[in-house]
Design a protein around this nucleic acid. Sequence first.
DNA 1: CTGCTAGCATA
DNA 2: GTATGCTAGCAGA
Length: 929
Amino acid sequence: MTETTKRILLVDAFSYLYRAFHAIREMRSPAGEPTNAIYGVLSMLKKLRQDYPSDYIACVFDPKGKTFRDEIYPEYKATRSAMPEDLASQIDPLVEAIEATGWPIVVVDGVEADDVIGTLAYNASQAGCRTVISTGDKDLTQLVSDKVLWVNTMSNERLGPEGVKEKFGVPPERIVDYLTLVGDSVDNVPGVDKVGPKTAAKLLQDYGSLDALVAKADEVKGVVGENLRKALDWLPTARVLVTVKHDVPLPFNVDSLTFRGPNKEKLLALYDRFGFRTMRDALLKDDAPSPLGEGRVEGSAPPSRAVNSAQPASVPTPPPTPTASFVATRNYETVLTPEALDKWVAKVEGAPLVCFDTETTSLDPMTAELVGLALSVEPGEAAYIPLRHTYPGAPDQLPFAATLARFKPWLEDASRAKVAQNAKYDCHVLANEGVRVRGIAHDTCIASYVIDSYQRHDMDALAMRHLGAKTIPFEDVAGKGAKQISFAQVALDKATEYSAEDADVTLQLQGVLGPKVAADPKLDRVYSEIEMPVSRVLFAMERNGVLIDSQLLAKQTHELSEKMLALEHRAYEEAGQPFNLGSPKQLGEILFVQKQLPVKKKTPSGAPSTDEDVLEQLALDHPLPKILLEHRGLSKLKSTYTDKLPRMVNAKTGRVHTNYGQTVAVTGRLSSTDPNLQNIPVRTAEGRRIREAFIAPPGSKIVSADYSQIELRIMAHLSGDKSLIDAFGRGEDIHRHTAAEVFGAATADVTSEQRRYAKVINFGLIYGMSAFGLAGNLGIERSAAASYMDKYFARYPGVAQYMERTRAEAKEKGYVETVFGRRLWLPDIKSANAPRRQGAERQAINAPMQGTAADLIKLAMIAVQGWLEREKLATRLVMQVHDELVLEVPDTELSRVKSEVEKLMMGVAKLDVPLVVEAGVGENWEKAH
DNA sequence: CTGCTAGCATA
DNA sequence: GTATGCTAGCAGA
C-alpha cells in the first residue's frame, strides 16, 4: 500500500461529559471543586488518541445559544432538566484543559455539535478519508458508512454499517427514518405513538423506507396504523429534527484540526489545581513514555488498553488500599495459546490473593456448564480464558479438560486464597466439572451484605458504590428476555471485556470492602465467623439436595385435581355461571356485583379484596365463599407444590437442590429459591401431606431439629426481663405463662382461648406490634387490645424498657444490632413521614430478635457440618427453615447424630435463657416432627 | 413476551 | 405489626 488514507477522529464532547459525570464517583480538587467529569473526559480523550491514531482530530462542543432546531420546533429539548451545578461548573475548566492537552476544540455558533460532526464526516468521506466518530449518542449512527465508524468509548461499542444493521435492524441510511418513527424522548421529539425500536425496524424492513411507508400508510393495520396516520403531518418536522446536517458552513479549515501537543506548563498547573497527581506525574515523565501509560491513578479512570494487547513489563503495584481508588486500566487478555495459559497458571500460583469468576450456560448453579474462566491478580489486569464458546466462527480455544486440569491443583488448594463475587455459585459450577474449590477467603457479595444488608450487592451496584465505576451489564453482552443468548454464544472480544472486567473489578472491590469489614471488630466477626463459614455449609447443603417422592406427589396432584373439579362445579352452580375461580377480578364481579355481597376491604389498588379474611366473613352469609376458600387452598397446594416440586428434580442426582440466598434477607436470615423449601405447608393436614413426600433413601431417615420459641427466648435475653427469663428457665409453656400474667389467672386455670390470645400477643411483640395491629389480628376492640398490652408490659417491665431502649438507640445510631454484632441500618428511622418512621421502628424491634435467631442457627449449621466432616459421617444436612435443621441420616448413625445435633444446637451460644431443641426422626419430613 | 397485582405458603 | 418467594391472572407491549 503506497497510498495512505487520511484519518479523522471526531469527539462529541457533551455526550461524554454527562456520562463521565454520572459514571465516575465524586471527585474534588484540593480546593473543593468537582472534577470527576473533567477527569473522565480527559482520560477518554487520551485513550481515544491512543486507540485511533489520526491525522486530524477534533473535540466538538455544542454552542451556548439556540440553533435552527429550536426555531422550527420550540419544544426541542424542552424536557431536558437543567444541568447539575456540579457538572456545569466543570465545563469551563474542562475546555481550558482540553486546549492545554493540544486537542483542537470546535464550537460553531448556532450549530449543534452533531451537525458539525456530520459536516466534517461528510467532507472527509468526499475526500476519501476515514472518520471515527466518538460519541454516546445513537442518533449519529446515521452517519455510519464504509468510511465512517461510530464508537462509544464508554460502553465499548463500535458500529460499522453491519453493526448498525444488527443493533437497530435497519442500515445506517435508514436510521433517520427509524428515529423519525421512534422519536427521541431525550430531545423531546415525539415519534409515532406505540412505535418503539422493534416496530419501527419491522415497518422499515416491510416497506423499505419511511417515504414508502407513508405512501402506503392506509394499508398499515391495527393501532400502529392508526397512530401512523395521525402522525403524518408531524413526521416531516420530526425528520428534519432528527436528521444530522452535513452541509453547514464551517468557519475554519479542516487542515487546522491537528494535534498540537500539550502546553506542559499550563497543563501541569491545571493538573495541580484539579489534584490529578498521577496525570501530572505522567506528564512530567512524558519524555520517557512508559508502555503502561499512566497506570494506577488516584481517583479514577486512567487510559485503557485494547484487548489482547501486549503485556507490559510487570510493574509491582501496592496491594489494593482501603480508599476508594479505582484502577480503570483495562489490560485484559483473552487466553488462547499454551504460552498465555502457562503465564496465567504461574500468575495465580504465585499470587497471594486471586479473584476468579466463571462464565456459564445457566443461572441454575447445579446445571450450569462452564464456558470460560476469568482471573485477576492485580487491579487493572485480568485474563479471560474461553473454553467452550460455540458460536459459528468462534476461534479455536484451549482444550477444556486439559486447561481446567492446569488450574485444578490451585483451585483445590485450601491454602491458596481466592476471592469471588458470590463464590458459592462459582463453586457449584466448578463442582459440576469435577473441581472441588477450596480456599475461598473472601466474597465481596457477603462483605457488602455484612456492611449494609439494605444495599444491593450485585457487582454492578458494588462497582458503582465503592469504586465509582460503571461496569458492563450482562444484558449488554448477552441480551435479555427471550432473546438472551447463552454466554457460549458471546463473541470472545465482548466476553473478555465483560468477564475480565468482572474479575478485575471484584478484586478491586475486595481491596475496598475487605479493609472496611476488618476495621470493625463486630462486622469482622459476623463476616469471618458466621457468614464465610456458613457459605461453605450452604454450598454443601445445596449440593446434597433432598430426596422427593415424585410418585406420591403425582398421586396428590391427581387427587387435588379431582377435588378442585368438584368444587369448581359447585361454585358454578352457586354463581349461576362458570367463571375462573383463580381470577380475583372475575370473582369480585360475581361476589360484589351479581351477588351484592358487602365489600369488606379494598386492595391497595382500590379493587374489592377477596382474600382469605374477607371470604371467611362472607362465608357466614353465603355458601360460595366457603367453596372458593377450599378451592384456593387446594389450588395453591397443587400449583406451588405437588405440580412444581417433581419438576424441580435434578435429572442427574434425582434430588431437589434449592438455592439458599445468603445476601437477600436484611435481618440475616437465609432465603430459599428454585424451589423455595422454606415455605412447604405445615399448618393444615392437607398441606402437611406434602411433607410426606420429603423422604430419605432406603436405609436412612429424616431427622428434623428445631429451636423451640427461639425468638421469644432471644427477647427474654435481650430485654433481661426477670419474669420472662425465669419462666423460660423453669421450662414453662411460655404462652400459658403469658396468659396467666395478662389475664390474672393461675397457670393451671388458663383456658385454651386465653392461651391462644397470649400466643398472638407474644408473636405481635416480636413484630413490634401496636394495639391497633393486635386488635385487627384478634378481631377485638382496639381498647381491649391496648389493655392487654398494658397488662403485658406491667407484668414484663423489662420487655417494655427494652422496646423503648431499642427505639431510642435505633434513632440515635441509625441502626440496630444482633447479639453477635450483625447490623441492620434503618434509613427511615428519622423520616418525617410517620408511617415510614413507624415501620422502621417496628423493624428496629424485630430485627435484633429475628437476626439473632439467624445468627444462632447459622452457627449451629457450622458446628454440625464441622462435626459431621470431622467424624466422617455419611449424614447430610439437607434443609434449613429458619429455626429448623433437616438432616438425612443413615440408620447406623441415627442415635448418635440425633443427640449430637441437639447438643450442638443448644450449646451454640450461652444466653440468659436455655436454648431448647426438639428433634424428631421419621421416614419422611412429616413424620420427623 | 415482560412486568405488575393479588393472594398465600413459611418462620 | 417482622422477614421471605412463587403462582396465576392480566395488562401493556
